[in-house]
């Protein structure tokens, strides 16, 4: 298929410099297929949407790409300052360090990404402390600045996340992840379960941050409307495999694969 980068040679890889490359990623849960033989490239500043129904393997793929789940087969490569790192070939300590400096992951369920019994400030400061910041005043200053940046009230710096609303929790997750200025951001159904107006404001914020920080983003969603707002390019997944890939407008306006056609039409019906 066209999107398979298996055939691309080293020269091409160096010239175009994708920030993330997956090569024939497969993951199995026992007999069951999570995802199978997925290859993809992610380019600087690009937002790649992965769409499909629940059970299509998109969340498994995201976990494998973001360093949270070692795949059964295949490789994930990340480019950092000119060198290419094979994510799962790295020693775990190096990988953990890479994850907290170069990669951010925003989960659908905020509890997965936020320590609910640690204040907002402590959550935002966690990565900085892990990276060696030992100045309390500066930690608070960074946390306050980031709360403003994600449009949270800095007066709530010392509040526990359990007092936050769903939309606020997602903003907190974003701040917590971006405080170390990573280049890669993974979003797993970031707006699912939020009110429509809250969703819209959150998507606005994400779009602004992506532009300002020149982030490269992989976003998993079952909601094509969300994909349309944020994504430049789409992968459509079914049964653990990528069935269609292309620029966002092309895929949504002129779907080729019957499954994509079904997805698009069902959205229109709904």
């Amino acid at each position: 298929m066209a999107f398979s980068s298996e055939s691309s040679n080293q020269a091409e890889w160096a010239a175009k410099e994708p920030v993330l490359r997956a090569v024939r990623l497969s993951h199995f849960y026992g007999q069951r297929v999570g995802c199978a033989g997925v290859s993809l490239d992610l380019w600087p500043g690009e937002v790649l949407g992965i769409v499909g129904e629940s059970g299509s393997g998109k969340s498994t793929l995201l976990r494998c790409l973001s360093g949270w789940q070692e795949p059964s087969q295949g490789r994930v490569q990340i480019r950092r300052e000119g060198e290419v790192l094979d994510l799962y070939a790295l020693e775990e300590s190096v990988r953990r360090r890479l994850l907290r400096t170069q990669i951010g992951v925003v989960f659908q369920r905020a509890e997965e990404g936020v320590r609910m019994r640690v204040s907002a400030g402590g959550n935002i400061g966690e990565r900085l402390m892990a990276e060696g910041m030992r100045h309390y005043g500066r930690l608070r200053e960074s946390a306050r600045r980031w709360m403003e940046r994600v449009e949270l009230d800095p007066a709530r710096l010392d509040d526990l996340p359990c007092t936050y609303s769903g939309g606020m929790l997602q903003r907190l997750q974003i701040a917590k992840n971006l405080v170390t200025e990573p280049r890669l951001l993974f979003l797993d159904e970031p707006t699912t379960g939020l009110d429509v107006s809250v969703q819209a404001r959150l998507l606005d914020l994400l779009r602004r941050l992506v532009r300002e920080m020149n982030l490269s983003v992989v976003m998993v969603t079952h909601d094509l409307a969300v994909a349309r707002v944020l994504a430049h390019r789409l992968l459509v997944m079914m049964g653990g495999q990528v069935v269609e890939e292309g620029l966002m407008d092309r895929v949504l306006d002129d779907p080729q694969h019957p499954y994509t056609q079904l997805l698009v039409s069902s959205r229109l019906v709904a």
Binding site: R115, V118, S119, G121, G122, G125, E126, R127, M129, A130, E131, R134, Y136, L139, R140, L157, D158
Partner: peptide, 13 residues
């Protein structure tokens, strides 16, 4: 890092 999160929380509270 996580040890410092605890210290941070102490001081913040």
């Amino acid at each position: 890092g996580i040890m410092y999160v605890k210290l941070y929380e102490d001081v913040a509270r």
